[in-house]
Nucleic acid binder design. Structure first.
Lengths: 144, 144
DNA sequence: ACTAATTAATTGTTATACTAATAATATACA
DNA sequence: TGTATATTATTAGTATAACAATTAATTAGT
Protein backbone atom coordinates (compact mmCIF):
# COMPACT_ATOMS: atom_id res chain seq x y z
CA UNK A 1 0.00 0.00 0.00
CA UNK A 2 2.89 2.34 0.63
CA UNK A 3 5.24 1.19 -2.08
CA UNK A 4 4.23 3.32 -5.04
CA UNK A 5 4.80 6.94 -5.97
CA UNK A 6 1.17 7.89 -5.74
CA UNK A 7 -1.56 9.37 -3.65
CA UNK A 8 -1.03 6.83 -0.89
CA UNK A 9 1.91 9.02 0.13
CA UNK A 10 -0.51 11.89 0.54
CA UNK A 11 -3.05 9.86 2.44
CA UNK A 12 -0.40 8.52 4.74
CA UNK A 13 1.00 12.00 5.36
CA UNK A 14 -2.44 13.40 5.94
CA UNK A 15 -3.41 10.62 8.35
CA UNK A 16 -0.16 11.07 10.25
CA UNK A 17 -0.86 14.78 10.65
CA UNK A 18 -4.30 13.93 12.00
CA UNK A 19 -2.75 11.49 14.45
CA UNK A 20 -0.24 14.09 15.62
CA UNK A 21 -2.91 16.74 16.09
CA UNK A 22 -5.13 14.30 17.98
CA UNK A 23 -2.20 13.29 20.16
CA UNK A 24 -1.18 16.86 20.90
CA UNK A 25 -4.78 17.87 21.60
CA UNK A 26 -5.13 15.07 24.13
CA UNK A 27 -1.85 16.04 25.78
CA UNK A 28 -2.73 19.71 26.21
CA UNK A 29 -6.42 19.21 26.91
CA UNK A 30 -6.16 20.59 30.44
CA UNK A 31 -4.91 23.91 29.12
CA UNK A 32 -8.12 24.65 27.25
CA UNK A 33 -6.41 25.47 23.97
CA UNK A 34 -6.27 23.64 20.64
CA UNK A 35 -3.10 23.19 18.56
CA UNK A 36 -4.40 25.70 15.99
CA UNK A 37 -5.16 28.29 18.64
CA UNK A 38 -1.73 27.58 20.10
CA UNK A 39 -0.07 28.27 16.75
CA UNK A 40 -1.78 31.63 16.45
CA UNK A 41 -1.02 32.60 20.04
CA UNK A 42 2.62 31.65 19.62
CA UNK A 43 3.02 33.57 16.40
CA UNK A 44 1.44 36.61 17.98
CA UNK A 45 3.76 36.36 20.97
CA UNK A 46 6.67 36.50 18.54
CA UNK A 47 5.18 39.49 16.70
CA UNK A 48 3.23 41.46 19.26
CA UNK A 49 1.44 44.49 17.84
CA UNK A 50 0.85 43.34 14.28
CA UNK A 51 -2.53 43.29 12.52
CA UNK A 52 -4.68 40.33 11.49
CA UNK A 53 -3.51 40.28 7.93
CA UNK A 54 0.11 40.01 8.98
CA UNK A 55 -0.70 37.43 11.63
CA UNK A 56 -2.54 35.33 9.06
CA UNK A 57 0.60 35.26 6.93
CA UNK A 58 2.87 34.38 9.88
CA UNK A 59 0.53 31.61 11.02
CA UNK A 60 -0.06 30.42 7.44
CA UNK A 61 -3.80 30.63 7.82
CA UNK A 62 -6.32 32.59 5.85
CA UNK A 63 -7.95 35.69 7.24
CA UNK A 64 -11.41 34.30 8.06
CA UNK A 65 -9.80 31.47 10.02
CA UNK A 66 -7.62 33.91 11.93
CA UNK A 67 -10.61 36.14 12.65
CA UNK A 68 -12.41 33.20 14.24
CA UNK A 69 -9.44 31.90 16.17
CA UNK A 70 -8.81 35.41 17.49
CA UNK A 71 -12.44 35.63 18.61
CA UNK A 72 -11.86 32.52 20.68
CA UNK A 73 -8.52 33.72 22.06
CA UNK A 74 -10.14 37.06 22.91
CA UNK A 75 -12.99 35.32 24.74
CA UNK A 76 -10.37 33.44 26.74
CA UNK A 77 -8.64 36.76 27.44
CA UNK A 78 -5.37 35.53 25.97
CA UNK A 79 -5.15 38.34 23.42
CA UNK A 80 -6.70 41.74 22.87
CA UNK A 81 -7.50 43.86 19.85
CA UNK A 82 -6.90 47.60 19.79
CA UNK A 83 -8.13 49.97 17.14
CA UNK A 84 -5.41 51.12 14.79
CA UNK A 85 -5.52 54.90 14.68
CA UNK A 86 -3.40 55.02 11.53
CA UNK A 87 -5.73 52.74 9.61
CA UNK A 88 -9.22 52.44 10.91
CA UNK A 89 -9.90 49.29 8.89
CA UNK A 90 -7.49 47.28 10.93
CA UNK A 91 -6.81 46.23 14.49
CA UNK A 92 -3.52 45.88 16.28
CA UNK A 93 -3.21 42.66 18.23
CA UNK A 94 -1.57 42.14 21.58
CA UNK A 95 -1.00 39.12 23.76
CA UNK A 96 -2.24 39.63 27.35
CA UNK A 97 -0.40 38.77 30.56
CA UNK A 98 -2.61 35.71 30.78
CA UNK A 99 -1.60 34.81 27.25
CA UNK A 100 2.07 35.24 28.03
CA UNK A 101 1.72 33.11 31.14
CA UNK A 102 0.02 30.33 29.18
CA UNK A 103 2.65 30.52 26.47
CA UNK A 104 5.48 30.24 28.97
CA UNK A 105 3.84 27.35 30.73
CA UNK A 106 2.88 25.42 27.62
CA UNK A 107 5.90 26.04 25.39
CA UNK A 108 8.30 23.69 27.18
CA UNK A 109 5.58 21.07 27.54
CA UNK A 110 4.92 21.00 23.81
CA UNK A 111 8.64 21.00 23.02
CA UNK A 112 8.99 18.03 25.32
CA UNK A 113 6.14 16.15 23.64
CA UNK A 114 7.86 16.58 20.28
CA UNK A 115 11.36 15.84 21.44
CA UNK A 116 10.64 13.01 23.88
CA UNK A 117 7.61 11.41 22.32
CA UNK A 118 6.85 12.10 18.68
CA UNK A 119 10.41 12.36 17.32
CA UNK A 120 12.02 9.73 19.54
CA UNK A 121 14.29 7.37 17.67
CA UNK A 122 14.38 9.41 14.49
CA UNK A 123 17.88 10.41 13.44
CA UNK A 124 18.90 13.92 12.51
CA UNK A 125 19.85 12.72 9.02
CA UNK A 126 16.47 11.12 8.37
CA UNK A 127 14.74 14.22 9.66
CA UNK A 128 16.79 16.27 7.25
CA UNK A 129 15.71 14.12 4.32
CA UNK A 130 12.13 14.21 5.58
CA UNK A 131 12.22 18.00 5.63
CA UNK A 132 13.76 18.16 2.17
CA UNK A 133 10.94 16.04 0.76
CA UNK A 134 8.35 18.36 2.28
CA UNK A 135 10.20 21.36 0.88
CA UNK A 136 10.32 19.79 -2.56
CA UNK A 137 6.60 18.97 -2.52
CA UNK A 138 5.81 22.56 -1.57
CA UNK A 139 8.04 23.87 -4.34
CA UNK A 140 6.46 21.54 -6.87
CA UNK A 141 3.01 22.73 -5.93
CA UNK A 142 3.96 26.38 -6.06
CA UNK A 143 5.44 25.97 -9.54
CA UNK A 144 2.40 24.21 -10.94
CA UNK B 1 12.83 28.01 11.60
CA UNK B 2 13.16 24.46 10.34
CA UNK B 3 16.42 23.52 11.98
CA UNK B 4 15.34 22.21 15.36
CA UNK B 5 13.72 18.97 16.50
CA UNK B 6 10.55 20.63 17.61
CA UNK B 7 7.01 21.51 16.75
CA UNK B 8 8.09 23.41 13.65
CA UNK B 9 8.38 19.98 12.03
CA UNK B 10 4.72 19.42 12.83
CA UNK B 11 3.65 22.83 11.61
CA UNK B 12 5.59 22.39 8.42
CA UNK B 13 4.11 18.95 7.83
CA UNK B 14 0.63 20.17 8.59
CA UNK B 15 0.96 23.19 6.30
CA UNK B 16 2.29 20.99 3.52
CA UNK B 17 -0.70 18.69 3.85
CA UNK B 18 -2.98 21.71 3.60
CA UNK B 19 -1.14 22.88 0.49
CA UNK B 20 -1.44 19.45 -1.12
CA UNK B 21 -5.16 19.23 -0.35
CA UNK B 22 -5.73 22.74 -1.68
CA UNK B 23 -3.77 21.92 -4.81
CA UNK B 24 -5.62 18.66 -5.41
CA UNK B 25 -8.98 20.30 -4.74
CA UNK B 26 -8.24 22.95 -7.35
CA UNK B 27 -7.14 20.32 -9.86
CA UNK B 28 -10.25 18.17 -9.53
CA UNK B 29 -12.70 21.02 -9.05
CA UNK B 30 -14.57 20.25 -12.27
CA UNK B 31 -15.43 16.78 -11.02
CA UNK B 32 -17.50 18.07 -8.10
CA UNK B 33 -15.77 15.93 -5.50
CA UNK B 34 -13.40 16.81 -2.66
CA UNK B 35 -10.25 14.86 -1.76
CA UNK B 36 -11.93 13.50 1.38
CA UNK B 37 -14.99 12.33 -0.55
CA UNK B 38 -12.63 10.84 -3.11
CA UNK B 39 -10.82 8.85 -0.44
CA UNK B 40 -14.07 7.37 0.84
CA UNK B 41 -15.35 6.60 -2.66
CA UNK B 42 -12.09 4.92 -3.60
CA UNK B 43 -11.99 2.81 -0.46
CA UNK B 44 -15.56 1.72 -1.06
CA UNK B 45 -14.78 0.81 -4.67
CA UNK B 46 -12.05 -1.46 -3.35
CA UNK B 47 -14.38 -3.02 -0.79
CA UNK B 48 -17.84 -2.92 -2.29
CA UNK B 49 -20.56 -4.28 -0.02
CA UNK B 50 -19.05 -3.48 3.37
CA UNK B 51 -20.79 -1.53 6.12
CA UNK B 52 -20.04 1.96 7.47
CA UNK B 53 -18.07 0.76 10.43
CA UNK B 54 -15.71 -1.20 8.19
CA UNK B 55 -15.46 1.61 5.69
CA UNK B 56 -14.55 4.05 8.47
CA UNK B 57 -11.63 1.80 9.40
CA UNK B 58 -10.46 1.43 5.79
CA UNK B 59 -10.68 5.18 5.20
CA UNK B 60 -9.14 5.99 8.60
CA UNK B 61 -12.00 8.26 9.57
CA UNK B 62 -14.38 8.06 12.47
CA UNK B 63 -17.95 6.92 12.01
CA UNK B 64 -19.71 10.28 12.25
CA UNK B 65 -17.40 11.70 9.60
CA UNK B 66 -18.07 8.73 7.32
CA UNK B 67 -21.82 9.05 7.89
CA UNK B 68 -21.68 12.65 6.73
CA UNK B 69 -19.44 12.04 3.74
CA UNK B 70 -21.69 9.15 2.67
CA UNK B 71 -24.70 11.46 2.88
CA UNK B 72 -23.00 13.71 0.35
CA UNK B 73 -21.92 10.84 -1.90
CA UNK B 74 -25.45 9.46 -1.77
CA UNK B 75 -26.91 12.85 -2.73
CA UNK B 76 -24.57 12.84 -5.71
CA UNK B 77 -25.73 9.30 -6.54
CA UNK B 78 -22.20 7.96 -6.40
CA UNK B 79 -22.99 5.35 -3.74
CA UNK B 80 -26.07 3.70 -2.32
CA UNK B 81 -27.01 2.20 1.04
CA UNK B 82 -28.98 -1.00 1.31
CA UNK B 83 -30.47 -2.34 4.49
CA UNK B 84 -28.56 -5.27 5.90
CA UNK B 85 -31.07 -8.08 6.48
CA UNK B 86 -28.66 -9.93 8.77
CA UNK B 87 -28.18 -6.95 11.07
CA UNK B 88 -30.85 -4.32 10.93
CA UNK B 89 -28.66 -1.76 12.69
CA UNK B 90 -26.30 -1.55 9.75
CA UNK B 91 -26.30 -0.71 6.05
CA UNK B 92 -24.39 -2.34 3.25
CA UNK B 93 -22.74 0.16 0.95
CA UNK B 94 -22.37 -0.07 -2.80
CA UNK B 95 -20.75 2.14 -5.38
CA UNK B 96 -23.14 3.02 -8.22
CA UNK B 97 -22.40 2.91 -11.94
CA UNK B 98 -22.02 6.67 -11.81
CA UNK B 99 -19.55 6.22 -8.93
CA UNK B 100 -17.57 3.64 -10.86
CA UNK B 101 -17.47 5.87 -13.92
CA UNK B 102 -16.20 8.80 -11.87
CA UNK B 103 -13.62 6.62 -10.18
CA UNK B 104 -12.30 5.31 -13.49
CA UNK B 105 -12.15 8.77 -14.96
CA UNK B 106 -10.53 10.44 -11.98
CA UNK B 107 -8.12 7.74 -10.80
CA UNK B 108 -5.55 8.17 -13.57
CA UNK B 109 -5.84 11.95 -13.32
CA UNK B 110 -5.02 11.96 -9.63
CA UNK B 111 -2.20 9.47 -10.12
CA UNK B 112 -0.80 11.77 -12.75
CA UNK B 113 -1.00 14.80 -10.48
CA UNK B 114 1.01 12.95 -7.87
CA UNK B 115 3.54 11.42 -10.20
CA UNK B 116 4.06 14.32 -12.57
CA UNK B 117 3.50 17.29 -10.31
CA UNK B 118 3.72 16.78 -6.56
CA UNK B 119 6.46 14.13 -6.44
CA UNK B 120 8.52 15.33 -9.38
CA UNK B 121 12.22 15.43 -8.66
CA UNK B 122 12.03 13.42 -5.44
CA UNK B 123 14.16 10.30 -5.50
CA UNK B 124 12.92 6.87 -4.53
CA UNK B 125 15.48 6.72 -1.72
CA UNK B 126 14.40 10.02 -0.22
CA UNK B 127 10.77 8.97 -0.46
CA UNK B 128 11.65 5.78 1.37
CA UNK B 129 13.26 7.74 4.21
CA UNK B 130 10.33 10.13 4.22
CA UNK B 131 7.92 7.22 4.62
CA UNK B 132 10.03 5.67 7.37
CA UNK B 133 9.92 8.92 9.35
CA UNK B 134 6.12 9.01 9.07
CA UNK B 135 5.93 5.38 10.15
CA UNK B 136 8.15 6.07 13.14
CA UNK B 137 6.10 9.09 14.22
CA UNK B 138 2.93 7.01 14.03
CA UNK B 139 4.53 4.24 16.07
CA UNK B 140 5.78 6.70 18.65
CA UNK B 141 2.32 8.16 19.06
CA UNK B 142 0.67 4.76 19.35
CA UNK B 143 3.09 3.70 22.05
CA UNK B 144 2.60 6.83 24.13
C1' DA C 1 -36.04 -15.72 28.76
C1' DC C 2 -34.58 -11.35 30.70
C1' DT C 3 -31.74 -7.92 31.80
C1' DA C 4 -27.19 -5.85 30.98
C1' DA C 5 -23.68 -4.77 28.01
C1' DT C 6 -22.25 -3.97 23.36
C1' DT C 7 -22.53 -2.38 18.68
C1' DA C 8 -23.92 0.41 14.20
C1' DA C 9 -25.36 4.44 12.87
C1' DT C 10 -26.95 9.04 13.66
C1' DT C 11 -27.22 13.64 15.68
C1' DG C 12 -25.42 17.72 18.13
C1' DT C 13 -21.71 20.82 19.24
C1' DT C 14 -17.43 23.00 18.49
C1' DA C 15 -13.30 23.99 15.73
C1' DT C 16 -10.87 24.59 11.45
C1' DA C 17 -10.52 25.72 6.40
C1' DC C 18 -11.89 27.49 1.94
C1' DT C 19 -14.77 30.42 -1.07
C1' DA C 20 -17.43 34.21 -1.96
C1' DA C 21 -19.60 38.32 -0.69
C1' DT C 22 -19.86 42.55 1.97
C1' DA C 23 -18.68 46.81 4.68
C1' DA C 24 -15.63 50.22 5.75
C1' DT C 25 -11.67 52.56 4.81
C1' DA C 26 -7.53 53.82 2.20
C1' DT C 27 -4.98 54.64 -2.02
C1' DA C 28 -4.29 55.68 -6.96
C1' DC C 29 -5.03 58.18 -10.72
C1' DA C 30 -7.50 60.79 -14.26
C1' DT D 1 -11.29 66.63 -6.43
C1' DG D 2 -13.71 62.65 -7.54
C1' DT D 3 -14.08 58.15 -8.95
C1' DA D 4 -12.19 53.60 -9.43
C1' DT D 5 -9.43 50.26 -7.31
C1' DA D 6 -7.40 47.94 -3.50
C1' DT D 7 -7.18 46.49 1.22
C1' DT D 8 -8.67 44.95 6.15
C1' DA D 9 -11.73 42.60 8.50
C1' DT D 10 -16.10 40.29 8.90
C1' DT D 11 -19.93 37.26 7.71
C1' DA D 12 -22.25 33.40 5.37
C1' DG D 13 -22.21 28.81 3.46
C1' DT D 14 -20.21 24.28 2.85
C1' DA D 15 -16.98 20.53 4.07
C1' DT D 16 -14.20 18.03 7.26
C1' DA D 17 -13.07 16.32 11.89
C1' DA D 18 -13.26 15.25 16.98
C1' DC D 19 -15.97 14.10 20.64
C1' DA D 20 -20.19 13.14 23.34
C1' DA D 21 -24.64 11.58 23.57
C1' DT D 22 -28.56 9.09 21.61
C1' DT D 23 -31.28 5.48 19.26
C1' DA D 24 -32.13 1.02 17.70
C1' DA D 25 -30.72 -3.55 17.41
C1' DT D 26 -27.84 -7.40 18.78
C1' DT D 27 -25.25 -10.34 21.92
C1' DA D 28 -23.86 -12.06 26.57
C1' DG D 29 -24.52 -13.61 31.08
C1' DT D 30 -27.32 -15.37 34.40
Amino acid sequence: MLDTRDESIGLFTSNTVKNIIRFLSANIKNFDITPEQWTVLKRLSENDGINQKELAIKAEKDQPTVTRILDILERKELILKKKNKDDRRSFILFITDKGIALKEELSPIIEEIWEAKILTGISEEDLKVYRSVLIKMNENIERS
